[in-house]
Design a protein around this nucleic acid. Structure first.
Lengths: 120, 120
DNA sequence: TCATTCTCTCAATAATTATTTAGATATTGA
DNA sequence: TCAATATCTAAATAATTATTGAGAGAATGA
């Protein structure tokens, strides 16, 4: 991950509709969702607006797309998201892991099977 | 972490000078750095520009400040950064940890004492 | 107190980004 | 091929964000 890629990715994530799309696709997993289905999940998003935001996200490397019949299916690019996290936190503790362990714990917990109450 | 906080944080991180400041402060650790010292580390940043960006970062909750004599010392708010990572990746694998383990590994590795070659 | 240092605030201008509207392209099935 | 569906592209306008330049406020030491 280079600085420019990171800047473009953060810019892409700093817009409400796009941030919602990414989170939706992160939850959807590798299967992904069609542009239309994503659009339905967003409030009042015209198809051109959706297309604008999806291509913005794709340019930023945060989503990938494939055509399936008439639909275009988008999925989250987890590798880019990982890279972004790593870029942001690189050298975060300079040998003092207690400084950034909370971040590691937060991320690790998302990978554990859920027990009891959901995340808040 | 709420959506609005996350949006503001990502917007703050999507500007070159501010992203550099955050990464500098993450490396600097809890001690932090004075506004002037940060400014010196940035190319051609006037004091008013630096002040604008630092207060933008503080508004976003990404840095904290304290006065020490004539200087104002800024440090990274690691808790906000952790929250941001957790917010972005929440429910990232739906029970299939192999999908997001690379992100966990990337972040974990930043907390290990360096061995051999530095990060690239 | 005065001069100096360090940092912040404000207003004007410049630059970037989002939304809307209209229309184009690709795929499918009759 | 034609009509229907799904999505994309492009141009104009609206909205947001960054930079500059001038100056103000707080802390320090002579």
């Amino acid at each position: 991950m280079h600085e420019k890629q990171a800047l473009v990715a953060f810019a892409a994530l700093s817009q409400e509709t796009r941030l919602r799309i990414i989170r939706l696709l992160v939850k959807a997993g590798p299967e992904g969702m069609s542009a239309g289905t994503i659009g339905e999940a967003m409030d009042s998003a015209s198809s051109s607006r959706m297309s604008f935001h999806l291509s913005h996200l794709e340019q930023a490397g945060l989503v990938e797309s494939r055509r399936e019949g008439r639909s275009i299916i988008y999925s989250a690019a987890l590798a880019t998201l990982s890279g972004l996290v790593e870029f942001l936190m690189r050298d975060c503790c300079q040998g003092h892991p207690e400084v950034c362990n909370p971040a590691v714990a937060a991320l690790s917990s998302c990978c554990e099977p859920k027990k009891g109450a959901p995340h808040v």
